[in-house]
Design a protein around this nucleic acid. Structure first.
Length: 878
RNA sequence: GGGCGUGUAGCUCAGCGGUAGAGCGCCGCCCUUACAAGGCGGAUGUCGGCGGUUCGAAACCGUCCACGCCCA
């Protein structure tokens, strides 16, 4: 029972509350409901509260983004978790905010500038950054309005942005600490360079794809001293500084240590032996371009080779007369043509499929580039991140995902954190006129004097996102919020960003918060796919705007569909038909509640003791409590699909179908029995609506407040299993369901219309069915047997007999067919059971209850066979 | 190339050792006074193939085939 339940005499809702509209129209009311929740501050979190904390931070969406189905999915799940915890009495914080999305945002604003015929270089860094802020304030963050549509119960007063003042201070603080601990360093290495975004990106921002390229074999040197090398990137030969062969390769042993002339140039390059060369690939000899290939860079390091950069940041050739000014792909053809003219092309394979890296942001082919960048030395941080999961301080759901996590943290490369952008946290390092390099904390003044300049690069957006679980709470200040809400309870996000984000939060959380994990649980969800299980993409044309479906079917319908598809870590397909189905469910709840209210459903007064209840009432209450327990267990295990499905079937099939139908005669009968059932129905609805609220908050709010007259289901108590179970009542109702189903099948086989009244005589004496005669008659449209009653069909069911008078209209053929089919099924069942019971191994080794179960089945099958055989014999010939 | 995963009803997916399930779709009947966004009834599967373990396999093991994802 809820704290809002009002004591006192029963009152119909008509007395004090407006009747529900006859039509369920979600789009018209959802917005107002949400605004009221926000105004009343239900979603705000109080750091001074003495309730236990429950914290989830939003995986911050890009400031450039708008709500897509992936967000809708993730937010539905987080909202369900936090709404339930709030109802359970936790001080619940769902922390909202966005990230500044360095590359994406800069791209957006640069495109705008482009339309005005300007570039960011025309306006300068400071003015450009100001312009981006202006864009952010005017056009950014559309998603927060859309989150309201969805019903997200976030603490809006705490909304944060990775680039706001406080979070920027967090970034600078941790940078300085890592720098001082020598976990951040600067080094010249080969990095992944995007010649379109004009910045370095980290390894995980590179997407590899099979592309059609070409494999060209080129002869270097002359005559007997020549070697043939194969390459897919002929244009880089201008930067070759060696040819490498395997040290054990007999074919080339005589050449190692000698030099060879590099075609098209005046340079001679050495032939070196390196055990990393694969003698099986191509000719076994490879060209070495240390400035344009990561593997070649390593060979170069091992052999002290120079690294010659032959392209600029746009990937345009900068050297060698005829090729200068060509971009890399033009240069490739030109160089192959030039080599062919010299007779140096030994073979060409075209197309040659091979794996090529692309910028995850703009799909441009990555150009490995030698450059000076900032790095995080991840080894000690990743070790700690791995250990936290290994020793159980952090658990991953579903558990199978742990392996992927370990594979990643245990083999992580240093993280390139500098980006050649203007929009982002600038590296807080200054260089002095005499080669000084100092790192500034947030409270330090930049060095005075001539000749000091700040590093021009900014930090990877993930660097600031990694601080999100604590920077949003005020870190590095020792705030009350930080004390109350850190560590977070759960990190719920997609498995696709386990490496991008989760690992980084783990590393930085453990480091910044003195070994305290950022969250106790990582719950991973899958990706939203279309109704055929295909990945959604704009280019494929199957992307859906969730707002359209929310307009059409209501936010609850979208949410329920997503929750119902959410198996842990598994992709969830979604189609419009399914959203429509969820809308139908909401509509069903709506109408069932209307019906209940019209029939005196109430939460007023104490629930009558079991002795005062009918078996039907005890049955539904018994089931209700089982469902409460099941749903709770599913919630604790992030089984959104199962809890949604459980509630769907319990509400629709059991409450709104069987219970309501079985109780109709009670309600029409009036009196004390009707009053008692009204109270039970009120109780069941109250609990079901509260159980459903976290998943479908809007429709449940309207119905629950109407039913109870209380303020809001958002702040209602979460239902608890009272422990009440009544197996006898459950068995009794199962018998009722069985007889009703059997007779309905008979009626249907006989071609009777569903509403057609048929005279019948029920012999129920001594069976569990006896108290339910009225309800059974009602459900089966059976009229009392009159004087001239003449049974033309006799159905023995569950120890009782139902005789019908179809006035000779019985369809013997249909009935014989039906019975023959049932007989065959029963005989098959009997066969299987007998075979098992005749198996000594089974009897000896199977658990007792399984054997008993088979015995029961055998008995049931035998009685079915007897019953059906009798029915067949009783049928008129014909 | 390495790793992970998936193949169950027309579609999308649960089930993961003890009678094959759901939603949607399909067929038939019905506007039965909460709901046609509904009700009643029905059909539909050698649980990818082949071996093995087991009293018993959709489930466990091996293998093959077909897809997917991640990493190189």
């Amino acid at each position: 029972m809820t704290e809002n339940t009002q004591q006192g005499p029963a009152r119909g809702p008509q007395d004090s509350t407006p009747a529900l509209p006859t039509t369920y129209a979600p789009a018209e009311v959802e917005g107002a409901l949400y605004e009221r929740w926000v105004e009343r501050g239900y979603f705000e979190a109080d750091a001074k509260s003495d309730k236990p904390p429950y914290t989830i931070v939003i995986p911050p969406p890009n400031v450039t983004g708008s709500l897509h189905l992936g967000h809708a999915f993730e937010h539905t799940l987080i909202d369900a978790l936090t709404r339930r915890k709030r109802m359970q009495g936790y001080e619940t914080l769902w922390q909202p905010g966005m990230d500044h999305a360095g590359i994406a945002t800069q791209n957006v604003v640069e495109r705008e500038l482009g339309k005005e015929g300007k570039s960011r270089h025309d306006m300068g860094r400071e003015a450009f950054v100001e312009r981006v802020w202006q864009w952010k304030n005017e056009s950014g963050g559309q998603i927060s309005g859309q989150m309201r549509r969805l019903g997200d119960g976030v603490a809006w007063s705490r909304e944060r942005f990775t680039f706001d003042e406080g979070l920027s201070k967090s970034v600078q603080t941790i940078f300085k600490r890592l720098y001082d601990d020598e976990l951040i360093y600067r080094a010249e290495r080969i990095i992944n360079w995007c010649p379109r975004c004009l910045t370095a990106i980290s390894d995980i921002e590179v997407e590899y794809e099979e592309d059609d390229g070409e494999l060209v074999s080129i002869r270097y040197g002359e005559g007997a001293d020549s070697v043939v090398v194969a390459t897919t990137r002929a244009e880089t030969m201008l930067g070759d500084t060696a040819v490498a062969v395997h040290p054990d390769d007999e074919r080339y042993r005589h050449l190692v240590g000698r030099t060879i002339k590099l075609p098209l140039t005046e340079r001679s390059i050495p032939i070196v032996a390196d055990s990393h060369v694969d003698p099986e690939f191509g000719t076994g000899a490879v060209k070495v371009t240390p400035a344009h290939d990561p593997n070649d860079f390593e060979i170069g390091q091992r052999h002290g080779l120079p690294a010659i950069t032959v392209m600029d940041e746009h990937a345009v050739i900068t050297t060698h007369g005829p090729f200068q000014g060509l971009d890399r792909f033009e240069a490739r053809s030109a160089i192959v043509a030039a080599l062919r003219a010299e007779g140096r092309i030994v073979s060409e394979v075209r197309p040659y499929r091979h794996s090529v890296g692309h910028c995850s942001r703009c799909k441009t082919t990555i150009e490995p580039r030698l450059s000076m960048q900032w790095w995080v030395k991840v080894a000690p941080l990743a070790k700690a991140a791995g250990d936290a999961v290994r020793d159980g301080r952090v658990t991953i759901h579903p558990q199978e995902m742990e392996k992927r996590y370990f594979d990643w943290v245990d083999n992580m490369h240093d993280w390139c954190i500098s980006r050649q952008l203007w929009w982002g946290h600038r590296v807080p390092v200054w260089y002095g006129p005499n080669g000084e390099q100092i790192c500034l904390g947030p409270d330090d003044e930049p060095p005075a004097g001539e000749g000091w300049t700040q590093d021009p690069d900014v930090l990877d957006t993930w660097f600031s996102s990694a601080l999100w679980p604590f920077s949003t709470l005020g870190w590095p200040e020792p705030t009350e919020s930080l004390a109350k809400f850190y560590p977070n309870s759960v990190m719920l996000t997609g498995y696709d960003i386990l490496f991008f984000w989760v690992v980084r939060m783990m590393m930085f959380g453990l480091y910044a918060m003195d070994g305290q994990v950022p969250f106790g649980t990582i719950a991973l969800h899958g990706m939203v796919r279309d109704q055929f299980g295909k990945k959604m993409s704009k280019s494929f044309g199957n992307a859906v705007n969730p707002l359209d479906w929310m307009d059409k079917y209501g936010s609850d319908a979208l949410r329920f569909t997503l929750a119902r598809g959410a198996n842990p870590g598994v992709d969830v397909p979604i189609g419009e038909d399914w959203v429509q189905g969820s809308r139908n469910f909401a509509n069903k709840i709506w109408n069932a509640t209307r019906f209940a209210l019209m029939n005196g459903a109430t939460v007023a007064g104490p629930l009558p003791a079991p002795e005062q209840l009918s078996a039907t009432d005890r049955w539904i209450l018994s089931r209700l409590n089982s469902v409460v327990a099941e749903v709770d267990a599913y919630y604790d295990d992030f089984q959104f699909a199962r809890l949604s499905d459980t509630l769907f079937h319990f509400a629709w099939d059991e409450v709104f179908d069987w219970y309501v139908e079985l109780s109709k005669t009670t309600f029409t009968g009036g009196g004390e029995a009707a009053r008692v059932s009204g109270r039970v129905l009120g109780e069941v609805l109250d609990v079901v609506l509260r159980l459903l609220h976290p998943v479908i908050p809007f429709v449940t709010e309207t119905l629950w407040t109407t039913l109870t007259g209380a303020e809001s289901v958002v702040i209602a108590d979460w239902p608890a299993d009272s422990g009440f179970r009544d197996p006898a009542a459950e068995a009794e109702i199962a018998e009722v369901q069985r007889v009703v189903t059997e007779v309905r099948r008979f009626r249907s086989d006989q071609g009777l219309q569903p509403g057609q009244r048929v005279p019948a005589r029920l012999t129920l004496g001594g069976t569990l069915l006896a108290p339910h005669e009225e309800a059974i008659r009602q459900l089966l449209r059976l009229q009392p047997a009159a004087e001239d009653f003449h049974a033309t069909a006799t159905l023995p069911v569950a120890g009782a007999t139902v005789e019908l008078d179809l006035s000779g209209a019985i369809d013997v053929v249909a009935e014989r067919k039906r019975l023959a089919k049932d007989l065959a099924a029963a005989e098959k069942e009997k066969d299987q059971a007998e075979r098992k019971l005749g198996n000594e191994g089974f009897l000896a080794k199977a658990p007792e209850q399984v054997v008993a179960g088979i015995r029961t089945r055998l008995a049931a099958a035998e009685s079915d066979i007897a019953r059906i055989t009798a029915q067949l014999a009783a049928l008129p010939q014909g």
